[in-house]
Write a protein that binds this DNA or RNA. Structure first.
Lengths: 209, 209
DNA sequence: CTGCTAAGTCCACAACCGTTGACTTGAAGC
DNA sequence: GCTTCAAGTCAACGGTTGTGGACTTAGCAG
């Protein structure tokens, strides 16, 4: 195969040349695509647009990701992570979910224009991207939530929890530019936490049901 | 017989000729567009497709609705109707909302392929259609719900209620074609009703808070 | 230096998009 | 009959889309 054993790491030829760096270009394309897809939806975002943002040629996008769908699939595969709201245990899910929903607004990614929840909502209706998103949503979000519970009716509770979290992300987007006075976030936070709490633990022992 | 005052209604010249009926053509276009927009999203649905379904020429669509956006706006303006879940009074909202969410599955419109909630979710991320949908959602759904309440924090409660209802519609669509076993609808119905109930009346007097 | 390979660019194809203006057709008024 | 006007069709425009192949260029091995 090769000369002897000297070329054990043959894949670290150059790294900080900052020009002609395939890995860096790939990352820049991904970053630009995240923003465009989440803000303009799958069909609304174009390859040329994304390539322009990343500062590369559109053909390079095809080279690295095969197709527009391949590019989207790669982004979708890392968009959902239930660990964000499950790291504190299942009982802390309501507070962690609300914090995640509110906290993303201050994250660096959000300010750069990317929001994983918005990525889902923007393209869930697309015939091409919808099924992909459904898959990862089921595998990486609803599934782990259900698995983390030990109550009965786990699957159904996980579905309703996801509905509440995603629904809030939806109305936050839909009502972002409304004309009337905005609702108070602190109140929204309290109401949503309580609703999640009921879905998570209602019907057990201490519930009124 | 009639030569003088007979022509009082000059705008009912022909009606049941079934050919060359502008009103009927307009209605067929609207019906076809509802289905295409709700299933393929705003950008995913094409004028030619819609016109083909309606059995008319694409140019006729432009004649009647001015533009694709005009056609979509007309559909969106009648998509949301809070009366569906408010007709029984504010206290009956949870049950009526859940019935509406479940009942649409048996409606004739649903079987024909049209779902107002899906119309919203499919195109909320579109730069062109999103703002239109946000407007009508605010005016015809969230607004009336808030107006029907006499509790404090009406606006915020209405937002959370809408989030839960729309979120459920979202996961219903997203998880429609999942591989694993489907959640039991009766359980989902009970959990969602309870969550809506808490959002609607929690924090008043009888709540645990 | 000369090769060699990966990284990147250029150009164009074929399909589709929304939209428009000129044209045709059918029904009603005289 | 002829005229008139709305209803509807036809063909095409300019633009954009995703994608593929040919080409060029930069960096490293020999």
């Amino acid at each position: 195969m090769n000369a002897k054993i000297s070329s054990v790491p043959p894949r670290k030829r150059r790294k900080e040349t900052s020009k002609r760096d395939a890995e860096a270009s790939r990352a820049r394309i991904l970053e630009a695509a995240k923003i465009r897809f989440s803000q303009n939806s799958y069909e609304g975002a174009g390859i040329r647009e994304i390539a322009g943002d990343a500062g590369v040629d559109p053909a390079l996008v095809m080279r690295y990701f095969g197709s527009k769908e391949g590019l989207f699939r790669e982004i979708a595969s890392s968009a959902f992570d239930a660990d964000d709201i499950l790291s504190g245990g299942i009982s802390a899910l309501p507070q962690q979910a609300v914090e995640m929903l509110m906290g993303t607004l201050d994250s660096a990614e959000w300010r750069r224009g990317y929001d994983p929840l918005r990525l889902l909502l923007a393209s869930i209706g697309s015939p091409a991207a919808g099924p992909i998103l459904s898959d990862y949503l089921d595998r990486d979000f609803v599934g782990p939530i259900a698995a983390a519970m030990d109550l009965k009716e786990r699957d159904e509770r996980a579905v309703i929890l996801a509905a509440q979290i995603l629904g809030f992300a939806l109305v936050r987007i839909a009502l972002a530019g409304r004309k009337g006075r905005r609702p108070r976030w602190a109140v929204l936070q309290r109401l949503l936490t309580k609703a999640l709490d009921v879905t998570l633990s209602g019907g057990s022992r201490e519930g009124a049901l």
